[in-house]
Simulated assay, not measured.
Amino acid sequence: MTLKTRWWSKSRGLPAEAYVSLVESLRAAGRPTERILSWATTGDGFCVGFPAVLSYGNRDGWTHVGWHEIENGGWNAETRRLSFRAYDGRRGLIDLAEPARLPELFRERVAASLVVEKFIPVDGNRGVTISGRRDLADAAAPIAWHSTLTRGVTWQTEGIRDLADRALEAVRTEYDIR
């Protein structure tokens, strides 16, 4: 039996079978099961944006990533692909058949997780970006601090690790956020 859903329901029109498997997967992963803000179809499933989490997959399996875990990424309208890199090295490439509002939601939610971001130049436009991000699912969670290198700089660059560590501590102290 196929259940019909309405756009104003909690599932926001996502097919019932997909919604049920998504909610089960979120619960199993310890992720919040909030209302859907936007969703789109992919080649073989769905991509779903929640207030604190981006989920993609199908009834056979889902992947979840918190907005605060995304280091960078964005939407390419030409390839119709949403891509990202997470701080832990995971990468996501999601082909969206009909993107709906997901590209805008992606930008907005990743930005909403940002508490502070500061660029520390090393050589012109090259350097280290220090960022503090908050988990949008847990207001009491500590700020997650990260050092990200721009193109042309690697962790093997002489003195860069020390510079990044000092910069991170200075930004944390400046904003008194631990």
Rank of each mutant, 00 (worst) to 15 (best):
A97E: 07
V128G: 09
L105Y: 05
G89P: 02
G127I: 05
S9V: 12
S83N: 10
V122N: 01
D123L: 15
V23P: 04
N125Q: 09
G127K: 10
G49I: 00
D176A: 13
L136K: 12
I177P: 06
R91H: 07
W8S: 15
V115F: 01
E98N: 14
L163N: 04
V128W: 03
G127F: 03
L163M: 04
V171K: 02
T2N: 07
D44L: 05
A86L: 08
A144I: 09
L37P: 06
Y19P: 12
G132V: 08
N76R: 08
A140K: 10
P121K: 15
L3Y: 15
R81L: 07
R178P: 02
R90A: 00
L163V: 06
R81W: 03
A139W: 13
G43R: 11
E169T: 10
S55C: 15
A77M: 04
R27L: 06
E98Q: 14
V65Y: 06
R90M: 05
G43V: 03
W8R: 15
R80Q: 07
D162F: 00
V153Y: 05
L149G: 01
A40R: 03
L26R: 11
V115N: 04
A77E: 06
T154W: 02
D176F: 07
L93K: 01
R109Q: 14
G127V: 13
V20Y: 12
P103E: 00
T42W: 04
K10I: 11
A167L: 05
E24S: 12
S21E: 11
S113C: 09
A144L: 13
W67Q: 05
L37H: 08
I120S: 14
R178F: 06
A137W: 01
R109N: 08
T42V: 11
R133V: 02
A29C: 08
S83I: 10
E108G: 03
D165T: 02
H68D: 12
A18Y: 11
G74D: 04
T129K: 14
E69H: 14
K118S: 10
R133M: 02
E69S: 13
G13D: 14
F50Y: 13
P142C: 09
H64I: 07
G159P: 04
L149F: 01
R133G: 01
T5F: 14
R101D: 00
A16N: 15
N125Y: 11
I94D: 08
Y175V: 10
V122R: 12
L37M: 09
D44V: 03
P15M: 15
E169G: 11
G13L: 12
R27V: 08
A100Y: 03
G45L: 02
G73A: 08
G49V: 00
A86T: 09
T63G: 13
I177H: 09
T148D: 09
P15V: 15
A137N: 03
R101K: 00
V48T: 05
T157P: 02
Y56A: 09
K10Y: 12
V20N: 10
L54E: 04
A18S: 15
K118E: 10
R101M: 02
A18E: 15
D138Q: 08
V122S: 14
G66V: 06
I160V: 12
L26D: 01
W155P: 00
T154M: 05
G74K: 09
A100T: 07
F46G: 12
T79G: 00
A167D: 12
A139S: 15
S55M: 04
F84W: 14
G127W: 09
E117C: 02
E169W: 06
V122W: 05
G13A: 11
D165M: 00
